[in-house]
Computed example of a mutant assay.
Amino acid sequence: MTAPIVVAGGSRAALRRNFRRGVWRVLRRKPSRMLGVVILIGFAFMGAVGPLLYPERLPRDDDALYAPPSWEHPFGTDFEGTDVLALVVTGSRYVLMTALVTALITVVLGTAIGLFAGFRRGRWDSVLMRITDMKLTIPALPLLLVLSTVWKFESAVEMGLVLGLLGWGGVARAVRAQSLSLRERGFVEAARGLGLPTTHIIGRELLPSMAPFIAMNMLIAVTGAVYAQVGLFFLGVLPFEANNWGVMLNLSVFGGGALTSTAALPYMMAPLLAILLLTLGIVLVVDAMDEIFNPRLREE
């Protein structure tokens, strides 16, 4: 009685080993993809550990306001004499945590609604898609303007929760389209013929087949969340209750005149370079994932 279990377990272990080897081959084939992985690991480390390397209140030097880049201050200082690199590192936690929470809520909620609507179709599909359509018509910026009058968004989780609840509609629509295609495949028909419950078919048959699509949407959602929150803080829509890259951009442009004076230019360029580097890492990893999960794109 134990032999089939051992064989099945051995088969799953072999599949996992083969998958890891395939991932390593795809990453190694193009050094740029390995660079993307290194960049994302670096940002994850910076967001988790970086702020612990600095005191809670960053030191200021009144004699070095808008100091130019140097060995001591690689990106110069801001209008208070605070090291710009320290501001980028300490502000990364809010930005990255918000992006992660946003991506999780966006993907989980959008995937759940899209899968269920696409698989069940009929009345459930109509109701869920009408809710999705109504959500897509809600303008996010005016809603955030109203919320900012009563909500300070001091916590990255709060910010991520709001952005996630405002951003799941597109994922739900895309996942529904994918599930409508997959539900007609032979393996799903076989599962329905065996009388397996809907939760089993969705969780064990449809969801694994859509894992690559969902994973790539999650990375794309991270990028969108970074742009959204940084843009809102830059425009001054949200109060400056926490240090982050958007606040740095706002203060450098509107307070330091970085667009007209070179003194505050490093203060503006530092968060822009961080955003650009993070986006580059995500793009390179998504390119690798596209080949990992799509056999037709794999090079022999």
Score class of each variant (00 low, 15 high):
residue 279 T to H: 11
residue 186 G to Y: 11
residue 171 V to M: 09
residue 175 V to D: 05
residue 146 V to W: 12
residue 188 V to Y: 02
residue 276 L to A: 15
residue 135 K to Y: 08
residue 204 R to V: 01
residue 80 E to L: 13
residue 286 V to L: 07
residue 47 G to P: 12
residue 87 L to P: 11
residue 291 E to G: 00
residue 178 Q to V: 07
residue 36 G to V: 03
residue 229 Q to G: 02
residue 223 T to Q: 14
residue 142 P to D: 04
residue 282 I to K: 00
residue 135 K to W: 12
residue 186 G to H: 07
residue 168 W to V: 03
residue 51 P to K: 02
residue 243 N to W: 10
residue 182 L to C: 01
residue 85 L to W: 15
residue 221 A to I: 01
residue 41 I to G: 03
residue 234 F to H: 01
residue 173 R to T: 05
residue 85 L to K: 03
residue 207 L to I: 04
residue 75 F to T: 02
residue 204 R to N: 12
residue 82 T to I: 09
residue 177 A to H: 11
residue 102 T to E: 06
residue 185 R to N: 11
residue 288 A to T: 04
residue 71 W to I: 07
residue 78 D to Q: 10
residue 112 A to L: 13
residue 130 R to A: 14
residue 30 K to L: 13
residue 28 R to A: 00
residue 58 L to F: 10
residue 194 L to Q: 15
residue 160 G to W: 10
residue 199 T to R: 14
residue 160 G to D: 05
residue 245 W to G: 00
residue 265 L to Q: 11
residue 287 D to T: 00
residue 155 S to M: 04
residue 86 A to Y: 00
residue 169 G to H: 01
residue 80 E to I: 01
residue 216 M to R: 13
residue 220 I to A: 14
residue 140 A to N: 05
residue 174 A to P: 00
residue 88 V to L: 07
residue 86 A to W: 01
residue 124 W to H: 08
residue 130 R to T: 14
residue 254 F to Y: 14
residue 143 L to A: 09
residue 282 I to R: 00
residue 51 P to E: 09
residue 130 R to G: 10
residue 156 A to R: 06
residue 139 P to G: 08
residue 195 G to H: 15
residue 219 L to A: 07
residue 250 N to C: 04
residue 61 D to A: 00
residue 169 G to E: 06
residue 284 L to P: 01
residue 163 L to D: 01
residue 207 L to N: 07
residue 273 L to H: 09
residue 19 F to E: 02
residue 121 R to D: 15
residue 194 L to Y: 14
residue 4 P to T: 06
residue 18 N to V: 10
residue 178 Q to I: 05
residue 2 T to M: 13
residue 238 L to M: 06
residue 191 A to G: 05
residue 284 L to K: 04
residue 112 A to V: 12
residue 3 A to G: 03
residue 156 A to E: 15
residue 140 A to K: 05
residue 188 V to T: 10
residue 18 N to Y: 12
residue 49 V to T: 06
residue 266 P to C: 08
residue 215 A to R: 00
residue 177 A to W: 14
residue 266 P to Q: 08
residue 145 L to Y: 11
residue 172 A to W: 03
residue 48 A to G: 10
residue 151 W to S: 08
residue 243 N to H: 11
residue 224 G to F: 04
residue 116 F to A: 05
residue 184 E to S: 13
residue 286 V to N: 13
residue 298 R to A: 12
residue 260 T to L: 10
residue 106 T to R: 06
residue 139 P to D: 11
residue 179 S to F: 00
residue 91 G to D: 11
residue 29 R to N: 05
residue 122 G to Q: 12
residue 101 V to Y: 12
residue 278 L to T: 00
residue 100 L to G: 02
residue 147 L to F: 12
residue 207 L to H: 09
residue 123 R to M: 15
residue 208 P to V: 04
residue 264 A to W: 02
residue 182 L to N: 00
residue 66 Y to L: 10
residue 261 S to R: 08
residue 151 W to H: 10
residue 189 E to K: 09
residue 115 L to P: 01
residue 274 A to K: 02
residue 288 A to C: 11
residue 154 E to P: 02
residue 152 K to D: 13
residue 286 V to M: 08
residue 103 A to V: 07
residue 76 G to H: 03
residue 41 I to T: 07
residue 36 G to F: 08
residue 293 F to T: 00
residue 67 A to T: 01
residue 12 R to M: 06
residue 300 E to I: 05
residue 287 D to Q: 14
residue 111 T to L: 04
residue 251 L to Q: 10
